[in-house]
Amino acid sequence: MELIRVSDVQKTYKTGTVALYDFNLSIKKGEFVFVIGASGSGKSTLIKMLYREEKPDKGSIIIGGINVAKLKNRKVYVLRRKLGVVFQDFKLLPKLTVYENVAFAMEVLGYDKRDIYKRVMEVLSLVGLKNKVRQFPDQLSGGEQQRVVIARAIVNKPKLLICDEPTGNLDPDTSMEIMKVLDEINAMGTTVIMATHDRDIVDKMKKRVILLDSGRLAKDIEKGSYCNERF
């Protein structure tokens, strides 16, 4: 079943830079998709449009029945509740503990305290941080912080997990650990879309790869790798 349909999307920034041009894409439920491309190829724009930080100038983006391109600012939460987002720079709240950071995502949706505790402990053990619940983000390593972010992104059981260069700040070993976690989440049925620069990861994972070049879809390969692409 189709989860995301991007049709004829065009985006030009105010500076005149064309970020995406005549872009089409379809992603099925349960897929794991890498989005790769050089800096300025439009992959960040594409990712940002999926969680509606940016709006397309033309075309439509349908995610789980919601037309993201036409979504009003005050209705954005309807979309965001269906997806989780993982960032390169983590975006954790420094004054909250690991537990509170993850619980925060459920609290703002008004869940009951007991339900929150059960679910937060569940996802924290999934990402392997069960013994660090009381620590603050700055007491954790980069890889651990990223796992907290992943836990927060999936705590509300989203259908879609969007990752914007989640391993960009991490060393290769830690990156592979993060990929293992993401793979597990994908195996449980969550669709994962991940923008990355990391060759090794893409080559090892053997997932669907979408290559962007100057705002266009250059290649779309099942079980692809980075090696045979040049940029």
Partner: peptide, 13 residues
């Protein structure tokens, strides 16, 4: 940042 994260995790305005 707190407000930004609230928006990202799906809190209504």
């Amino acid at each position: 940042r707190e407000i930004e994260i609230m928006r990202l995790v799906g809190a209504s305005n």
